[in-house]
Design a protein around this nucleic acid. Structure first.
Lengths: 145, 145
DNA sequence: CGATTATGTATCTCTAACTGTTACATGTGT
DNA sequence: ACACATGTAACAGTTAGAGATACATAATCG
């Protein structure tokens, strides 16, 4: 089971977008994310709808942040991605008749709910400027693979 | 990404094994788990090696618990399954050069480590008898699908 | 206006991980 | 011997997600 790296990928790109301080195209940003422009746009669509970033079409178009880093929490980004599933484990059937299965499910669901709360709490506490390196790494966006 | 239901499945079967109080075959238990005997054996191999259950070959063979329910924690079962991956999210690359990526990874890794600790703590606190219904549901193992 | 450049998105293909399946060797009791 | 059960390797099938392609839409430049 491969992990969903979208949150990590998007955070990465957002920080680079801030450092660039100019419009960057899907083509450039997708390379920085290690993918292709269509996947990049698909991934960023939610962030645009959530008002975290802006995109402009046509000549000289591209992407930029719609808010300063300190006004974006990890939770904002996570939710803009559509709150992707956090866990790789779960119950096979949700509505069980069997009393044993009900009890087993309850334990799993409770623990996962507690862990999910932990995630959203932590994510809500962290703003993107807290992740940004103090001193800009580089003025240009570069690929990492 | 489909969820790994092995922990839930195995807990379910273990509780039924206890209620039966006799050797049950892979064939019967696999049905109760909603799969086939080979998958069942593959899944239970770790539990046998961990000493949570015993299996016997040949005529009249099958599976039984090797310990009472109150001496088995969910953590024991989870570890016997090989500590399957808990999370559906993660970082794309683990050893990044880029300082931005390093920071992003650190946040993700920290939060996931904290959540993992929560899981193992909760799992370690719960013994199987705490999940078992007070009064036996049924003397026979039955399928649920 | 037309050419160019960029996003928006539907649709299809590809792939990797896992489950399911089959086959057969090994062991056990009658 | 024979029947029955586990142990496990090897192969097939499934499927969710990423990757790729195509094309419509929109904005800017000359």
């Amino acid at each position: 089971m491969n992990r969903d790296t979208r949150l990590s990928d998007v955070l990465h790109v957002l920080l680079h977008m801030e450092q660039a301080n100019e419009l960057l195209t899907s083509d450039v940003l997708a390379r920085s994310m290690g993918t292709n422009p269509a996947v990049f746009r698909r991934t960023m669509a939610g962030l645009r709808e959530a008002g975290l970033v802006r995109s402009e079409k046509g000549h000289g178009g591209g992407w930029q942040l719609a808010r300063p880093l300190y006004e974006i929490t990890l939770l904002d980004v996570y939710e803009a991605l559509g709150r992707p599933n956090l866990f790789a484990i779960g119950n096979r059937s949700e509505h069980a008749e069997c009393l044993v299965e009900k009890n087993v499910n309850a334990v799993m669901v409770d623990t996962m709910a507690e862990a999910a709360t932990l995630f959203t709490t932590r994510f809500g506490e962290i703003t993107l400027d807290q992740i940004a390196p103090r001193h800009p790494v580089s003025a240009s966006v570069h690929a990492h693979r």
